[in-house]
Write a protein that binds this DNA or RNA. Structure first.
Lengths: 208, 208
DNA sequence: GGTTTAAACTTAACAGTGTTAAGAATGATC
DNA sequence: GATCATTCTTAACACTGTTAAGTTTAAACC
């Protein structure tokens, strides 16, 4: 078959040949690494983190239970690479609004979390992922740097005196809103307050 | 050698074993429910959430692997009761500073989280606990009510227009600071910023 | 007091998990 | 075309939460 892909890192753009047969062959099906990540992500958003097992992922991908080991070493290795992709996507979501100020960027942050609740949760589950995995460390550092730059652009209506305090306050608010929103706590707050707002509008208001 | 479960089996001889343990008797030792919760909590703060298994808890408590079932029904039942205790303790920690304003209460919130990182994390792990457990639902509601009252006392230097937006902003900031602090992100921020502050001072500043 | 009943706790077993080890199949390289 | 290194397979191991059935004990009832 001329449709053979290079093992892991094709130096250039991996050309996708027409009529790619995903699981026709038993061995060496070519892009299992990518398929496993996509499968894991689907499973994550469909059924939550608790369902993200090595066997569940491989079963859905149609391969044997241990097929992920050569690619990721372990479950936490796979989850770490998935989390790394999440950090990269978050950075991508933040980049275009960087110039529009912190409120817009904060809103983009929370919206990313709400659009990918499972992935976002996974990104901060330090007992499920391994920060020593190079891809994760790199992606996390990239996103952190962008966040720091972002928080630096904030005007300071806050009462914090130190620069670190100001940034912590801003990041805390944004991250806390994301976490609370995913957990359903903000819906509860809206209900308790009797306010007639969408979740998005609430977050936007809280970030003013 | 560490695999043997129970050194002192009754074995039908004298009904009083020489080495009298905490509660002595093999069956009906009286306060196993409390002991299991305490053991689980120790294990939680010592080794993290990942180590909190039914078998690990009962092994450390010196009882059989299924001894927790009559009391809690399942692992998530046990963890839910533990989380309920956490919510109650959080409310207790917040009560005395309620009159001192939101900054003081926010600081108490974060300090509670930093003093009990495992427990605090567990309280918001919705895939490990079961919010339908009555004790948890009650404790969570109590603490939520106190939080809402607390957030209501805030002065509003924030830009939010709606009451819910203001409260979400405040709660988000406090909760986000707690989560980020536990995850070590605030230490990283301090290091990146080159600021010479304690974590506690940073949080206090961020809450001004 | 003696008997019955209900609960706590036990072992044994089941289905599931992540991981390891060894072998089969294949693409790449000399 | 032969060799080699991967990729993927099956089989097995140690572990998990949970269920079922049996044993021990405390309490309740006559």
């Amino acid at each position: 078959m001329s449709s053979t892909c290079n093992p892991a890192r094709p130096a250039g753009a991996g050309s996708t040949p027409p009529g790619r047969r995903m699981s026709a062959k038993t061995y060496h099906h070519g892009n299992l690494r990518v398929v496993l990540l996509a499968t894991a992500r689907d499973l994550l958003e469909e059924q939550g983190i608790a369902a993200l097992g090595l066997r569940a992922i491989t079963r859905r991908a149609g391969v044997s239970a241990t097929a992920a080991i050569p690619h990721f070493g372990s479950l936490s290795g796979l989850l770490s690479v998935l989390a790394a992709a999440g950090f990269d996507e978050l950075a991508e979501a933040l980049a275009p609004v960087l110039a529009q100020g912190a409120a817009a960027a904060g809103l983009a942050y929370v919206r990313f979390a709400l659009r990918n609740p499972g992935l976002f949760t996974l990104m901060f589950r330090s007992d499920a992922i391994d920060r020593a995995v190079p891809a994760l460390a790199a992606a996390s550092a990239r996103t952190s740097a962008m966040l720091t730059r972002l928080l630096g652009t904030m005007p300071g209506p806050q009462g914090a005196r130190t620069r670190a305090g100001m940034r912590a306050a801003q990041w805390g608010r944004v991250h806390g809103l994301a976490v609370l929103a995913i957990d359903g706590m903000l819906d509860a707050l809206l209900a308790a307050e009797g306010e007639d707002l969408s979740l998005d509008a609430l977050v936007a208001d809280a970030l003013r």
